[in-house]
Design a protein around this nucleic acid. Structure first.
Length: 901
RNA sequence: GGGCAGCUAGCUCAGUUGGUUAGAGCACCUCGUUUACACCGAGGGGGUCAGAGGUUCGAAUCCUCUGCUGCCCACCA
């Protein structure tokens, strides 16, 4: 017999347990296989960790992700799948570089990039990234994550770089990657382009200026950005607008607009100009507005770039403005309009400001030479395992992305996000992939410089795209080659994650075994950034889906539903809750009460509540251990002697079945709640109390403990593992035990209802006691009129006596209520509690009267229902039968209550 | 402007294809040192299921409209 400490102290055990797991080698599926722990019939299960950014530490959102993914991983592993959960981190190009720059600036170095230069600066970034990485790995371990560290990857390591170069080259050769001078989103602070979905919109109040370019110009226009008007090439009006349609096609020359450049304004017709909005006319700035750029393409307008990459006005804006920041230029244009009496109106208007999602700085749309992925260009997919697309079919990237979700090869959970996904793809434009930052995968493109020196041939101006560093120009053999200085969007390499981590482009066993991955679990906030990009990249590169299912979780918010942020001071740090309440409590607080795709509100109290539960489980085990002389790992179902034995085992079987089904269906919260109900409600509150009465249950207690530890293990691995080793010896590992399967049980229904009767008798007596304020020390005398349940009640008389705290219990087939007792009815059983000198009988009458009334109401309700012809005619027979039964039962009960009154 | 969620007990949320007197946890109230656990036990109060119509024998559940709340998307200058 072994005795556990009274309270579970997670801090004492967690680190050791994790080390024990790691040392066992069983995070690695190959080792599980070698040890014979894999069930070949089950197959493989694989999942990648959405790689956290190496920008700092993990927050509670990551903890939530880890809890869910570890739950699934441990469940699958115990089920016998060859299970791989592959960890890694993300270099997060712009984010990491920005962070390091900021750290230098805080230290007093104003322009770290300039002062250090590319190479030295990158060394500093790498150093920072390495530190973050170490912190992150440590935090993953604290959470109990059972990842295979031997396969860890980084989005910017050599293996991933090789994959990036291969994919880039392949896409270029297929004509899907091209270089072009096009309008891009430019962040003047990051000094880089951004993809369309990296631009966020913030509502603000802006000044709207209504004015004319000159006195002679016939149409007024309005804008919130007057300085951009220095680059206008047209005014667009609706062709059906009688006020303006006569001007369409005319050209006006505006000399020295704003005191700066000359403008050539053409009046063009555009159907989607709203006649009723503003002046009904729009000034067209082709170089600095996405909408205007498209109009310019259609109407052959010149693209006049008047704002440069530093957010300053170019020469094109005129001498007066050259080199000035946009805000200064804006004020000066407005000033000029006023001076020349051209400003007609100045008003405040709500306006959407585009900002950089990384640094919050205002985005400047401007034309620039960049690399793009063409999402609409047709190409041949040579090898396809995509349903509905044959090998050799002509497709587009958009088509691939749509097809795999449309044909349900990829299932998104919850499915409402499928709509969001399709909507996004429908509006998807070419993806700008080049970034002007240093930290990232260098674009694998070289340019021949021989041309400048006059030794080159025609064709040398073409970029050289190559997986390996080219030694000479293939055209002119010049060795003077220079690599493109740009790097790739971080999502380009992240998009390859499911297969680059498994060894692609090499033909590895991992790739064969684990790809497509089984599940991708991630936040809905990166559905577009990452999930969609992985689908794009994988279907294109491999002709395969990257994963079969996508489970999207929500954000973790504070108890008031606000986002957690440093400035609000409402951040819950997972490391804090782990050290205070334990990793298991932290995990449970993130798993329970959390449903797919919905945000989760978290408070410290919630974590504390689950700490209480871990302690409850500990104490259940403590009690069981005190009652088993010799714990056995071998768990054949022992002989069931009493009603309670049959009841608890029947319930255990149900809970095994329910919990398994719920986990399979991604209802993790429901599964956990079901387990808790069984563990705390059925097991602790009833069965263990009964065990104290009935005694000699060591085998059955051993069996139950064994099973619930397994069932709880995926939810709270630490405490279950610790108990396991305390019970069965330190050399045993629960993590790789077999998940319980349901033993056949018969007669479950009768057992359940019989036990329910006993429970209700006990509860009924307790209620009487509480209602009448009878002290617990006072033991009661009870007579039961048992009717057909005579044997049942007799068999369980000791249980009733102890749990209801009775002095005496008389069980008769038929008994009469005495004048000095109070009673209640349970089915066809009547229970009489002798109350001589204990309570006020009037009060008891009152209680019975109340119950009589509510029962009468209930009966009336059912009677009315059954009297309703339409109900009887239309409702299914089973429903009607159920109502009839309810009525009969209620009437019997009513009669008995009446007789007691 | 378009779309998607949510609105159920004081709080956080369950409620699977319409059919129990609508549930759980926390909080609250009463009682309790019964040797697994006070990080506990026993009992209890508390809800016109946002509002209004409709479909149906029957609606928290399906439909329509309205009202809040949150999120996503979008070139209305």
């Amino acid at each position: 017999m072994k005795e556990l400490p009274k309270a579970y102290e997670p801090q004492k055990y967690e680190d050791n347990i994790y080390k024990h797991w790691e040392d066992s080698g069983f995070f690695n599926p190959d080792n599980c296989e070698k040890a014979g722990l894999v069930d070949v019939a089950k197959g493989n299960f694989s999942m990648v960790l959405p790689p956290p950014n190496v920008t700092g530490t993990l927050h509670i959102g990551h903890a939530s992700m880890l809890a869910i993914e570890d739950l699934v991983t441990r469940y699958k592993r115990m089920q016998g799948f060859k299970t791989l959960w592959l960890p890694g981190t993300d270099h997060a190009a712009i984010a990491t570089q920005t962070k390091v720059e900021k750290l230098f600036i805080e230290k007093g170095i104003k322009d770290p990039k300039k002062e250090l230069g590319r190479d030295k600066f990158l060394v500093e970034v790498e150093k920072f990234a390495q530190e973050s990485h170490d912190t992150i790995v440590n935090q993953c371990k604290k959470m109990g994550s059972s990842m295979d560290w031997s396969r860890e990857a980084y989005t910017l390591d050599d293996a991933r770089n090789l994959a990036v170069r291969h994919v880039f080259k392949k896409m270029y050769d297929d004509g899907l990657i091209y270089r072009g001078y096009r309008l891009v989103n430019w962040c003047p602070r990051c000094k880089s382009t951004l993809a369309d979905d990296e631009v966020e919109h913030k509502e603000q109040i802006a000044k709207l200026y209504t004015f004319k370019y000159s006195k002679d110009f016939p149409i007024s226009i309005a804008t919130t950005r007057p300085e951009t008007k220095l680059g206008d090439a047209a005014v667009a009006v609706n062709p059906n607008d009688e006020r303006y349609s006569k001007y369409i096609g005319q050209e006006f020359l505006i000399k020295n607009f704003g005191g700066g450049a000359d403008l050539k304004i053409k009046i063009i017709g555009e159907e989607n100009v709203d006649v009723k909005f503003g002046t009904g006319a729009v000034g067209v700035t082709p170089a600095h507005s996405a909408a205007d750029y498209e109009m310019a393409q259609k109407n052959n307008l010149p693209i006049i770039k008047i704002i440069d990459e530093n957010g300053q006005m170019t020469k094109e804006a005129g001498e007066k403005y050259f080199g000035k920041p946009v805000k200064v230029a804006r004020a000066e244009v407005v000033e000029w309009l006023k001076e020349n009496n051209l400003l007609e109106k100045e008003e405040e208007t709500p306006n959407n400001l585009s900002i950089c999602y990384r640094c919050g700085y205002a985005i400047e749309p401007l034309p620039s030479q960049q690399w793009f992925v063409d999402v609409n260009r047709k190409f041949i997919l040579p090898n396809s395992s995509i349903d509905g697309i044959k090998s050799g079919d002509q497709v587009t990237l958009k088509k691939l992305m749509q097809q795999v979700v449309n044909n349900k090869q990829i299932e998104i959970i919850p499915d409402r996000f499928e709509k969001t996904y399709f909507h996004w793809i429908d509006n998807l434009r070419d993806w700008c992939i080049s970034r002007q930052i240093w930290y990232g995968h260098r674009v694998p493109v070289w340019y021949c410089h021989g041309l400048d020196k006059g030794v080159c041939l025609p064709g040398c101006e073409k970029p050289i795209v190559s997986v390996e560093v080219p030694t000479k120009c293939p055209n002119c053999s010049s060795v003077d080659l220079v690599q493109d200085s740009d790097t790739l969007d971080t999502w380009f390499s992240a998009g390859l994650w499911t297969f680059s981590t498994l060894g692609w482009p090499n033909k590895t066993m991992d790739l064969k075994n684990f790809h497509p991955t089984s599940l991708l679990e991630t936040g809905y906030d990166i559905l577009f950034f990452w999930v969609a990009r992985m689908i794009l990249m994988t279907t294109y590169t491999l002709g395969q889906i990257p994963f079969e299912k996508v489970y999207l979780h929500g954000l973790v918010r504070d108890e008031k539903g606000r986002k957690m942020s440093k400035s609000l001071g409402n951040v819950i740090n997972p490391l804090d809750t782990i050290s205070q309440f334990g990793a298991d409590a932290t995990r449970l607080s993130l798993l329970l009460g959390n449903t797919p795709g919905n945000d989760l509100k978290l408070s410290e109290e919630k974590v504390e509540g689950f700490r209480n539960f871990t302690n409850k489980l500990w104490n259940i085990s403590r009690f069981v251990l005190l009652n088993i002389p010799e714990p056995k790992l071998d768990t054949k179902l022992p002989e069931l002697k009493t009603l309670s034995d049959k009841w608890i085992i029947s319930n255990l079987n149900k809970v095994i079945l329910d919990a398994s089904t719920m986990i399979e269906n991604y209802q993790f919260s429901a599964a956990g709640e079901r387990l808790r109900e069984f563990t705390w409600g059925d097991l602790a509150d009833w069965y263990l109390e009964i065990a104290k009465v009935e005694g000699s249950k060591d085998e059955i207690l051993n069996y139950i403990l064994n099973n619930i530890l397994k069932l709880w293990h995926p939810f709270m691995p630490f405490v279950t593992e610790q108990i396991w080793s305390e019970v069965y010896g330190a050399d045993k590992i629960l993590m790789v035990e077999k998940w319980p399967s349901v033993a056949v049980s018969n007669g479950g229904d009768k057992t359940l209802s019989d036990f329910e009767t006993i429970k209700k008798i006990i509860t009924g007596i307790r209620v009487l006691r509480a209602d009448n304020k009878i002290e617990p020390v006072l033991k009661l005398d009870v007579v039961i009129s048992a009717g057909t349940k005579l044997d049942l009640i007799k068999e369980n008389s000791e249980v009733i006596k102890t749990l209801a705290r009775l002095e005496s219990l008389e069980i008769l087939e038929k008994a009469q209520k005495s004048q000095t007792s109070a009673g209640f009815v349970e089915g066809d059983i009547e229970v009489f509690v002798e109350l001589t000198g204990v309570i006020d009988l009037d009060k008891e009458k009152e209680r019975l009267q109340k119950e009589f009334e509510s029962l009468t109401k209930f009966i009336n309700g059912i009677e009315n229902k059954l009297a309703n012809e339409d109900f009887v005619k239309n409702a299914p027979a089973a429903v009607i039968e159920k109502e009839r039964q309810k009525l009969t039962e209620a009437q019997i009960k009513l009669d008995k209550i009446e007789s007691q009154l």
